[in-house]
């Protein structure tokens, strides 16, 4: 990991000072020219597919547009935001609440499971083999993940209900009962993201120096309290990173929803990303959809800041 030391732009390479001044200036000019040349494709791309779309999204969110004829855009100020955030709008409840529940549930589940598994895996032989098994869903398309689980949940003929029936429990309508639909999808999201969490946590675990544990052993601490008092606190930065990235991922994820439930039953699994998609590409309400996208982005931003702030503060208290 030593390759990463230069991550701050301030530690620029010390240019050779041996060169004579004249040729140095010339070389500098040439370097600057080359640099802009090398960067131009990247900058052009970000101009077209990052800056322009952002402006476009903001503009659309302030307008009413039924699609297809750009001359028929009508500027309406903050009306779209007013409509989707008003009381009684289904965007706030249940859709945004679902989005948060979905993300919280999936991250909590994945985090607890991955800490436990990552910690256990480091004590086993054939670590790599075990990790690979947990990693399979990461490289699998969401279409496969969603469909596999849809059939596992199937009331007539799916594996999970097959097992329940075998022990005498009658079938559960996992995806068509609104009480179980969201938790069922949360499990799939957690299942699919646990692999990368384990991987990153393993890296974090390996970075904890052995001396800490040896000191603990001398004090006669149990494995459990070593985990609780040594491993977890030292793992905090890694945990924070995993939590934030998984949260961002889960808040915006809706491919799984498209594949598994299309937001149903009765909006029980409708999340903000899916509603945005639906408003634009199905109902033709592009302005409303863009406003939803920006609101969701704001939510993600605020939650990320909150997490950072919370962990920083806790870090200061304990240290």
């Amino acid at each position: 990991m030593t390759t990463l030391n230069g991550s701050s732009p301030a530690t620029a390479p010390t240019a050779s000072k041996r060169s004579r001044r004249g040729s140095l200036a010339k070389s500098r000019r040439r370097q600057a020219w080359a640099a802009w040349f090398f960067l131009s494709p990247t900058l052009l791309f970000f101009g077209i597919f990052l800056v322009l779309p952002l402006l476009f999204a903001i503009g659309l969110s302030l307008s009413v547009w039924g699609g297809f004829d750009l001359t028929r855009i009508e500027f309406t100020g903050l009306d779209n935001f007013g409509a989707i955030l008003s009381e009684g709008s289904s965007f706030v409840a249940p859709i945004l609440t679902n989005t948060l529940l979905f993300a919280f549930g999936a991250v909590a589940l994945a985090l607890v499971a991955s800490v436990a598994i990552a910690h256990a895996i480091t004590r086993l032989r054939f670590e790599g083999f075990w990790r690979t098994l947990y990693f399979l869903p990461i490289v699998t398309t969401v279409v496969a993940v969603g469909n596999i689980w849809k059939y596992l949940y199937e009331p007539g003929g799916g594996l999970i209900n097959g097992l329940l029936n075998a022990v005498g429990i009658s079938s559960v309508q996992f995806l068509s009962d609104p009480d179980t639909a969201l938790p069922s999808v949360v499990v799939v999201q957690a299942w699919a993201s646990i692999g990368s969490a384990i991987l990153i946590l393993t890296a974090g675990l390996k970075a904890i120096p052995h001396t800490y544990y040896e000191a603990g052993e001398l004090d006669g601490t149990t494995a459990w309290s070593a985990f609780w008092h040594i491993t977890l606190p030292l793992l905090r930065p890694t945990l924070l990173f995993v939590m934030i990235t998984q949260f961002i991922g889960a808040l915006q994820s809706f491919a799984l929803i498209i594949v598994m439930t299309s937001g149903g039953p009765a909006n029980a699994t409708n999340v903000a990303g899916f509603e945005m998609y639906q408003q634009a590409f199905r109902f033709g309400s592009w302005g409303v959809a863009s406003a939803m996208a920006l609101v969701l982005f704001a939510v993600i931003f605020v939650i990320t800041l909150l997490q950072l702030w919370f962990f920083r503060r806790k870090g200061e208290e304990t240290s």
Binding site: S90, D177, P178, D179, G264, P265, A266, N267
Partner: peptide, 9 residues
């Protein structure tokens, strides 16, 4: 559809 399903369930 959402309202009717909410009653059903």
């Amino acid at each position: 559809q959402g309202s009717i399903e909410a009653v059903w369930t």
